[in-house]
Design a protein around this nucleic acid. Sequence first.
DNA 1: TCGTTGAGTCAACGACTGTTGAGCGAAGTG
DNA 2: CACTTCGCTCAACAGTCGTTGACTCAACGA
Lengths: 184, 184
Amino acid sequence: MEGTPTSRAERRRRTEERILSAARAIFAERGFQRTTIRAVAAAAEVDPALVMQYFGSKQELFEQAVRIPSIPPLDGELEPVEELLGRIGMKMGPLPQATLAMMRSMLTHPDAAEEVRGKLDGQVAQLADAIGSGDAELRAALMVSTMLGVTIAHQLLGLTALRGASPERIAETLRPSLRALADG
Amino acid sequence: MEGTPTSRAERRRRTEERILSAARAIFAERGFQRTTIRAVAAAAEVDPALVMQYFGSKQELFEQAVRIPSIPPLDGELEPVEELLGRIGMKMGPLPQATLAMMRSMLTHPDAAEEVRGKLDGQVAQLADAIGSGDAELRAALMVSTMLGVTIAHQLLGLTALRGASPERIAETLRPSLRALADG
DNA sequence: TCGTTGAGTCAACGACTGTTGAGCGAAGTG
DNA sequence: CACTTCGCTCAACAGTCGTTGACTCAACGA
């Protein structure tokens, strides 16, 4: 069954990825503070000391775990509003664990807060640039805030009214609202 | 200066309120987990053991601190959308410390999450009732989520584009968006 | 005045946490 | 084969936290 026992370098890569995967899951579920190195190690079936040896500190483990390698490219043509949001990497639907971990921690972990604020500021700037007009920056910020709120309510808080709704239906119902902001 | 040294019962009430006030401030700033009994006690200029003696546990201190006595009544006539939101106790502008403490902790403290979810679910139900029409519940949920997102971005994360904007200007810019959701 | 009550303090316990250094044993190298 | 490398574990340290029990002393009631 399990063919070659794999080389040493390969084993290390796998273990490291197993730790990162477990870390992402637990960080996303409990946030930074309530996540313990021991819990991550247990989920990865590894000794806690190994986690430290690989990542140096809990903070560095978090940074590696929430690092998203590439910005998801937009696929094909979309409705104007979705296109605008898609262009900055915001869309409805299930988010990667790394993003959830980041969002889960952003209100209680200063570093995560700064990271998210920076990312959102960047998205606001891009959106404002695409929108034009007078108070574009404020309207862009409100669009981003709206997406943020819906995502939190849906993915992290689990509002009853949103739990049964598909991402498509949410996006569709939300569209006039976002368009009103985009058009001014 | 300090007239009567105050009676024993009065002193107790003042100390208790001093502790609650300090707790609200620190809970609002750091969230539940990162707030220590010791820090609250220090801010209230009291021994940590006294906090325990008065409130029994950190969890009970939190519950007492975030308890909001009364629902703010809506004042006078408002624009339709603001009236709808005001009716359920949602409005722009500075929020009480207790509310901020609750929101700060809602993503990482399960009890706070449940409390907020319950409150928001209730507001969604009220809003949906006032809106009527077909998918009223989903649209109401998105309105509440929008308010939530803007509040988080503005008060807790401090998005650059929102930091300089007055609550009135935000409310005004946001109005067409919310109306689009309310009208369907 | 004297005993009682209760606000407030002090020192400590036990649990948990991030983190560390020594060591084991198998994979790699000559 | 002998020797080194390194993935990995074990046991422990040091600090912090919520929580507790004994204690001090001024306000109170009779």
